[in-house]
Design a protein around this nucleic acid. Sequence first.
DNA 1: TCACAAAGTGGTATCGGTTTCATATATATT
DNA 2: AATATATATGAAACCGATACCACTTTGTGA
Lengths: 332, 332
Amino acid sequence: MNISEFSKIAGVSKSAVSRYFNDGYLSEEKRAQIEKAIQITGYAPSIAARSVKTRVTKLVGVILPKLSSESCSRITEGIDEVLEAEGYKLILVNTANNPLKEIESLELFRQNRVDGVILLGTVFTELHKSVLKKMHVPVVIVGQRLKGFNCVCHNDEGAAYALTRQMLKNGAKRPAIIGVTPEDKAAGKARLDGFLRALNEFHVATGGKLTEIAQFSMDSGYDHAKHLFSQAGPKPDCLFCATDDIASGAMLYLREQGLRVPEDVMVCGIGDTKIAKNTYCPLTTARLHYKTAGIEAANMILSSIRHGDKIQRTLQLDYDIVERESTKRETV
Amino acid sequence: MNISEFSKIAGVSKSAVSRYFNDGYLSEEKRAQIEKAIQITGYAPSIAARSVKTRVTKLVGVILPKLSSESCSRITEGIDEVLEAEGYKLILVNTANNPLKEIESLELFRQNRVDGVILLGTVFTELHKSVLKKMHVPVVIVGQRLKGFNCVCHNDEGAAYALTRQMLKNGAKRPAIIGVTPEDKAAGKARLDGFLRALNEFHVATGGKLTEIAQFSMDSGYDHAKHLFSQAGPKPDCLFCATDDIASGAMLYLREQGLRVPEDVMVCGIGDTKIAKNTYCPLTTARLHYKTAGIEAANMILSSIRHGDKIQRTLQLDYDIVERESTKRETV
DNA sequence: TCACAAAGTGGTATCGGTTTCATATATATT
DNA sequence: AATATATATGAAACCGATACCACTTTGTGA
């Protein structure tokens, strides 16, 4: 069923039908005829055909590294909430942590003539930047700061600093970190930097031996805790983890080994995901406002789409420290 | 940049360009010219324009009740994995548990001329069925069984039965359930049925007072556990929860009240989500194969799109019982 | 050498919409 | 009454692609 066929059924011209769906001048009489015909036929105009002419797709492409991670899905939820209300649809690509797929996806989005792109970024190469520069539509990056692009990000360094500082204040003497790759400037480098800044302030040194680089998963947290605590020499008494998932995996290992949290080892994570509340020893963490980040990213892209302004903005959302049991200790 | 403009730059005809992108007869010479021009201009054909003519969008619409739930995001991940490999893109709608939005989304998908629809369903009304019937593209429903439609679902009743049976075998005498609305035939009704079947088999009665209807969340699990244990009369000694999230919330309440798991109260959930491994007392649950469900749903829709067969199929994936500490008890 | 199939080519109709245009009518303003 | 303005209308051009068509060139087998 197309507009011509439908217009005949409704007994009006093609133009009238188009006007009906686009708020043009139209007599009440024709409006009624068209509405009646819709009831009967169920006709709905093709967005694809429309967008050929109007060059507007009402589509926003979203690239994310892992759909089934709580942080990503909550960000996406925020994005969807805003864009859906404005009549935009989300076209989603899950890169499964494959940076090559990000590039491919951008190409795909260009073919689909999306009105904007939101990228939940991890690691950025020069290739990324050059491909992003060539996009002819607004781009917003979430979770990372990339010069020359609109970004919504968290205060990663500050959160890591505050958490580590808290553990040191509570009497920890030998801090260790299970981080993620420093190629990830936010979750990797910034959180490591915050950790180190706190150590520096407390005049505590950490050998490279107490620095682990894990993946973004519980299992990886477990494995790296094992590696950390299997080394010769004195054991860490405090463990900063780059994410709650990593922290929960590490705690699973500690529990297996009969190490008490927080008595023997303090632990903290970042994110305040659901798991933090439920670990056997409730996890101290920094709440990151994922959904809000998604909402703000969506607002940012809407504003760019509508006003086409080229001013680059970076929005940083602050964290909230959520102190639970895993870092509390009676100072001796 | 459109195909005409591009074809001039490449020094070939429009037809040649179209053939380049659609594997038609084309001399090596022209192929090379086109490739060179692509390098320079970055031209990519418009999918929208193409789909007007071909009537194929390579778009699959996915409707889900809550993006940030682990089960939904894992199903979606499975769907994406398969469809992405076949060149399909996902257009996503999060209904936020608003059944009206499911209907709206279907309308939206019709406008977008998606090639297929995958619906992660919860509650189905007659309106749902009639709108679904009117879709002119294949539909697959995940997580529910709906007569007349392709479905991929779990063995909800069996899982609930097996878990409850396990708790009764381990010596529980006074079982309670925190379920979800029976309007949800899978997570609500079927799991309640399984619970009751086990009770029946063990000749245990349960008053309506020991049946709570919660939402799909930790907080709701907490609230309903509170309600359950605040009632007058003997307390339950075993708690079947319709989801892991509900179970984890309930356990949080039990812990607050100083009730030990499993000594005072056995608890189990369904899903085997990440949280189950991490609760202070590791949670016995039934593993549901969410990602596999997504993969199978995607395969089903692909097959329907390609072969257009009208045979309705229902695929049921079985569960695996994962027995952890929360249901173990030394029989006295 | 000829017949016939396969490869290669560009013009044009077509897909399903929107928008411009020319024109007509109704209403409001001087 | 004359004029300006808002409302209403359908034909036709257009958006950016594909597909059919008629045609030419090349390759193959008898």
